[in-house]
Design a protein around this nucleic acid. Structure first.
Lengths: 183, 183
DNA sequence: GCTTCTGATGTTAGTCACTAACATCAGCTG
DNA sequence: CAGCTGATGTTAGTGACTAACATCAGAAGC
């Protein structure tokens, strides 16, 4: 991980977020970002495969997979997914700073970005569904459980982004609790 | 609904699906589709706002909103959403023909298309969440219920698309049943 | 210090989705 | 047949993204 490249990458990301917030995402071209960061647009694309990807990072999949797998297989799949995601959440550092909220809002307010964010989510969902299937769940049930839990997680994140106050954690926990089978 | 325009639209959609299946989505340009349909690329974009939209139609939102709203407000939001979506489903014609399955597969196999399909889904989700809030549900709970139900629906659709046999309807019903609070 | 090698970056010239402005053409109405 | 209107074509863009090739900065070895 050479440091010059890493510095350029960080600079691009920082500058991009700032410009997107200032001028709006669509009104900011990749060229604007590159120029403001003092590089050419090619350098931008060497660090980020798409304009959207500069806003969206999501490296948590492996951890989630592990922790869902660690839940007892005699639970119903929905419950297993739920507990696994709760466990994953509680083992992560709270990333709920203001910059993250700004990022969530940026994404929430832009259909294209929302769609891309959902792609990440979908990858996680596929992973969770696969783990559930390995634990013996029928395919449909595995997918539904994964879809419902990830849907709830996303809802919590968007809800937190739209709110002005309060930490993310409790919302995530509350969202997953709501799937917990009380009626 | 003038008939010439409608005919052109239908032709574009038919030709597009055929070419996408034959050559792949990315390898087919909008110009290819337009040319094969005997029109210019501008005509394509007059009928479909994006290349992706020619594959994705989704006019069911208003019905879903109505039917969720029609469920008793003294039910928990998740249950209300669940029953409303079940009602909406059972009042729709079964669209589960081979062409639809081909379409679902096309979408499932292409990240960009999946993302766009999710946008439609998100619109529906927002609508359902809003209806639930109108019925007195707290914001987070409304979003979670909507997210979980729509996630389950999508899972059912993808599951059906990936399978070789069987109708869609029962899968949808089964998916929503799985959210029905048994543990 | 100088060469050399390599990874980071720049330049240039594309393709393709998508848009705006304006021209034209087909079919219907009077 | 004149005229109107909606469907379509033409042209000329912008902007995301890619490929090919050139260059430049810094570390490694001499």
């Amino acid at each position: 991980m050479p440091s010059r490249a890493q510095a350029t990458r960080d600079r691009l990301q920082r500058v991009a977020l700032r410009l997107f917030l200032e001028r709006g995402y669509d009104a900011t071209t990749v060229n604007d970002v590159a120029e403001a960061a003092g590089v050419s647009h090619m350098t931008f694309f060497r660090h980020f495969p798409t304009k959207e990807s500069v806003v969206l990072d999501d490296p948590y999949d492996p951890l989630i997979g592990e922790l869902v797998r660690a839940q007892p297989t005699d639970l119903p799949p929905l419950e297993r997914a739920r507990r696994g995601l709760l466990a994953a959440w509680s083992s992560l550092p709270e990333p709920a700073d203001d910059e993250t909220r700004a990022r969530v809002r940026l994404v929430a307010g832009h259909p294209g970005l929302r769609a891309h964010a959902w792609e990440n989510n979908q990858r996680t969902e596929d992973l969770v569904a696969e783990v559930l299937r390995d634990g013996g769940a029928p395919r449909l049930e595995a997918r539904v459980a994964a879809g419902a839990c990830l849907g709830a997680l996303t809802a919590a994140l968007l809800d937190w982004g739209a709110a002005d106050d309060g930490p993310l954690g409790p919302r995530v926990v509350a969202a997953l609790e709501l799937l917990g089978g009380r009626r």
